[in-house]
């Protein structure tokens, strides 16, 4: 088994389209960690994921998965160790679970039918139904069951929980928790739902219009940042280096600040991941990038 220190290492990943450019993306996902990959629609999340997976050709940069370089494509043996869940279930809709199990068994050397059906039963997926008769949530659960039924060490999830109800999302997060208990397992997940990422992620990466805005350890970031609510007069005395974004309301100023740089006596409230990202994207973001 490969014992690389990082599950995923991306350096200078670039992809040009006429109307969009993925601009030198750098990120590192340490082994045994979960990274949330956030960005608005069209920010380049799926382009990044498809570049990692080799579905689209990158114009520049390197991608190492589980310590292996993928410049010449991902070796088939490495693909055995990558579980992928895309934003829609890409399995033929007329097939049923028995068919899927047969196909996957023929595709993956490490496919484990028992594990597959264990997940199927856990998710209460009806074995007699065809995939087309499943709800979106059931389809996503099936995709996840497939991703976990072979020797996956890295899960790559593209909007796997979007469009699902909170109960289903919670079930899936529980499953991801179980998966990550093995320190050789890692998850790279893109999502719009920052509350899910707050629960499970060790690292957050944010991209905006194809550029990397932030790639940091989540707990450290959330401890470091807070929301300061004060009057305009008080705000004028705050060190500008401490402020990463602000908005003026009828009651004064609300600003995303670095707690340590704020004078004692002022109340700095907890900032959610959503708050941090929204303030960052609306302000000069370069200072937090480091």
């Amino acid at each position: 088994m490969n014992t690389a220190a990082n599950a995923l290492e991306i350096k200078g990943l670039t992809k040009h389209y006429p109307a969009f450019c993925l601009d030198h993306i750098d990120l590192t996902l340490p082994m045994g960690s979960v990274m949330g990959f956030i960005g608005e629609n069209g920010a380049g999340k799926s382009t990044t994921i498809f570049s990692i997976l080799g579905a689209i050709r990158r114009d520049g940069g390197t991608v190492r998965i589980l310590g292996q370089d993928t410049a010449q494509g991902i070796p088939l043996s490495l693909k055995e160790q990558i579980g992928v869940v895309l934003d829609e279930c890409c399995l033929p809709e007329t097939l049923n679970l028995k068919d899927i199990n047969g196909i996957m068994k023929a595709a993956y050397r490490t496919w484990n039918s028992k594990t597959f059906f264990r997940h199927v039963h856990r998710f209460f997926l009806d074995e007699t139904k065809r995939i087309k008769d499943y709800s979106r949530g059931m389809k996503m659960k099936l995709s996840i069951a497939c991703a976990l039924a072979h020797d996956s060490r890295l899960l790559i999830l593209d909007e796997a929980t979007s469009g699902l109800d909170p109960v289903t999302r919670d079930e899936l997060l529980d499953l991801f928790y179980e998966f990550i208990q093995d320190e050789q397992h890692s998850i790279f997940m893109s999502s719009h739902i920052t509350s899910d990422l707050e629960k499970i992620c060790d690292y957050v990466t944010y991209i905006h219009k194809g550029k990397l805005i932030l790639c940091q350890e989540k707990d450290g970031l959330m401890q470091r940042m807070g929301i300061l609510k004060c009057s305009e007069t008080v705000f004028r005395d705050i060190d500008p280096a401490a402020v990463h974004g602000k908005r003026t309301t009828a009651f004064g100023v609300e600003a995303l600040v670095e707690r340590q740089k704020i004078p004692a006596g002022l109340v700095v409230e907890h900032a959610s991941l959503d708050d941090i990202l929204i303030y960052l994207v609306k302000s000069d973001m370069s200072r937090v990038k480091s």
Binding site: L76, E80, V84, C89, C90, P92, A107, Y108
Partner: peptide, 12 residues
């Protein structure tokens, strides 16, 4: 069903 997108992620 966008199979090829998914198929390329498998050992194929």
């Amino acid at each position: 069903c966008h199979w090829n997108q998914y198929g390329i992620t498998m050992p194929i």
